[in-house]
Amino acid sequence: SFLPTPVAEQALRRERQHPTLRTLLVGGDRLRQFDRDPGFVLVNNYGPTETTVVATSGQLQPGGALHIGKPTANTRVYVLDAQRQPVPVGVTGELYIGGAQVARGYFNRPDLSAERFLDDPFAGGRMYRTGDLVRWNADGTLDYQGRNDDQVKIRGVRVELGEIEAALKALPGIADAVVLVRDERLLAWFTEAAAVDIERLRE
């Protein structure tokens, strides 16, 4: 069994009713388990929207490592340290993606574009700084390790915990707030400086 994304779960339900599935492509969220042969090939795709969705891809083996595959065609992938130098196999670094599919930047956000879309010093052109932490395996696949910031994914949707915390703190009566993810749910803790409108807080 494996813990898939909601879209994959729907495909699996259909497959149980009509067993014709030979290959299932998943992506958009982190797989956490794949320990039994489901009777079809499972391919794990990774890639942010800023690099036109799929940047790495690889077939998973039941009971094997849950990697995010190798770079797709015409994609350059770098695992870099804090000085933007390549790290050795097995060492965690930040993932950068280059190639023709890298977007130009964020619409009307030159500040964020300058922070995330950089000159590629290794091959020319541009590369995207993902904020994802990965490490190379000896076979050329990549292990996903997590984020280097507060961004999380819930059912495939990017969520910035800091933005939610800031919105909560802006409400009347909230002194401080912390937001975490547990079991695909957002949970918030807060301290009151005055009476709080709970319905507005939930909204």
Rank of each mutant, 00 (worst) to 15 (best):
T5K: 10
E9P: 01
Q10L: 15
Q10D: 15
A11R: 09
A11Q: 11
R13C: 04
R13W: 08
R13L: 12
R14E: 14
E15L: 06
H18L: 15
H18K: 13
P19T: 07
L24R: 06
V26D: 01
L31Y: 00
D35F: 06
G39M: 00
F40G: 02
V43G: 04
N45S: 13
P48T: 12
E50Y: 08
T52V: 11
T52Q: 15
T56A: 03
G58Q: 06
G58C: 03
Q61L: 14
Q61I: 12
P62M: 05
G63C: 05
G63W: 03
G63K: 03
A65E: 13
H67V: 07
I68N: 01
G69C: 09
G69K: 10
P71W: 09
T72A: 12
A73N: 10
R76N: 07
R76I: 03
L80H: 09
D81Y: 09
D81S: 08
A82Q: 12
Q83V: 01
R84I: 01
P86Q: 02
V89N: 06
V89M: 02
V91L: 01
E94A: 06
I97L: 13
I97K: 06
V102D: 02
A103N: 13
G105W: 10
F107M: 11
D111I: 08
L112G: 05
S113F: 00
S113Y: 06
S113W: 01
A114E: 08
E115M: 07
D120R: 03
P121K: 04
P121G: 02
A123R: 10
A123V: 07
A123K: 09
A123D: 12
G124R: 08
M127G: 08
M127P: 09
Y128P: 03
R129A: 15
D132H: 14
D132S: 12
L133E: 12
L133V: 12
V134G: 09
V134Y: 09
W136C: 01
A138M: 02
A138Q: 14
D139I: 01
G140H: 04
T141Q: 04
T141P: 01
T141C: 04
Y144P: 04
Y144M: 06
G146Y: 05
R147D: 04
Q151S: 15
K153G: 07
I154R: 08
E160L: 14
G162R: 13
E163Y: 11
I164L: 07
E165C: 07
E165V: 15
A166G: 03
K169W: 05
A170C: 00
A170M: 02
G173P: 00
I174W: 01
I174A: 04
A175G: 08
A177P: 00
V178W: 07
V179C: 02
V181R: 05
R182Q: 10
E184M: 12
E184W: 12
L186F: 09
L186R: 10
A188S: 10
W189P: 01
W189E: 13
T191W: 09
D197G: 00
L201P: 03
L201Q: 06
